[in-house]
């Protein structure tokens, strides 16, 4: 088994140029906060160094009152886990697609976009992946202010 500490140290130095804040929530996990425009260069650096693979993208709504959404890009290598965290404004959330570096991110980005209303600029298939064709525009089911009653139709 590979050593998580050494792997995380390597990742930390790869990501240093873009890191605004770095956290180690547990022994095998490194969280790096980066600015939204840095997501592509940071992902490219990990990819170029052969550090792990993008295992998932998680969207978070930090709440209406905060005016913020967050996206977490989870990379895994053996036992080690790196999360790139970007915070986006709730009213105009836009992030660049990482598909040019990691083509497999396509499904994750489409999900992020339809569930949280985050515009993923340059993602190759921006159309819906999970939500039905007749889902109303501008309604994002994983945002905290989503109200399912709005979707109820008469009868």
């Amino acid at each position: 088994m590979k050593d998580a500490t050494a792997l995380l140290q390597a990742a930390e130095s790869i990501l240093a140029p873009w890191a605004k804040e770095t956290m180690r929530p547990d022994a095998a996990r490194l969280d790096v906060v980066i600015a939204p425009p840095d997501i592509v260069p940071a992902a490219r650096a990990l990819h170029a160094a052969g550090w792990g693979f993008l295992t998932a993208i998680t969207g978070l709504d930090l709440g209406v009152e905060t005016g913020k959404l967050e996206a977490l890009y989870h990379f895994c290598e053996g036992p080690a886990l790196v999360n790139l965290r970007v915070t986006l404004p709730r009213d105009t959330p836009v992030i660049d697609s990482v598909c040019s570096v990691i083509p497999a991110a396509s499904f994750f980005e489409r999900e992020l976009s339809e569930m949280f209303g985050i515009t993923v600029k340059g993602t190759p298939h921006p159309e819906r992946l999970f939500l039905p064709e007749d889902w109303p525009d501008g309604v994002y089911p994983l945002r905290k202010d989503f109200n399912p009653d709005r979707l109820r139709t008469e009868g």
């Binding site: 298939h125 819906r128 992946l129 999970f130 939500l131 039905p132 089911p141 994983l142 989503f146």
Partner: peptide, 14 residues
């Protein structure tokens, strides 16, 4: 080839 999913998306996360 293109893929469309979600036909049994049940909103479990929500």
């Amino acid at each position: 080839a293109t893929i469309r999913l979600g036909y049994v998306h049940r909103g479990v996360e929500r």
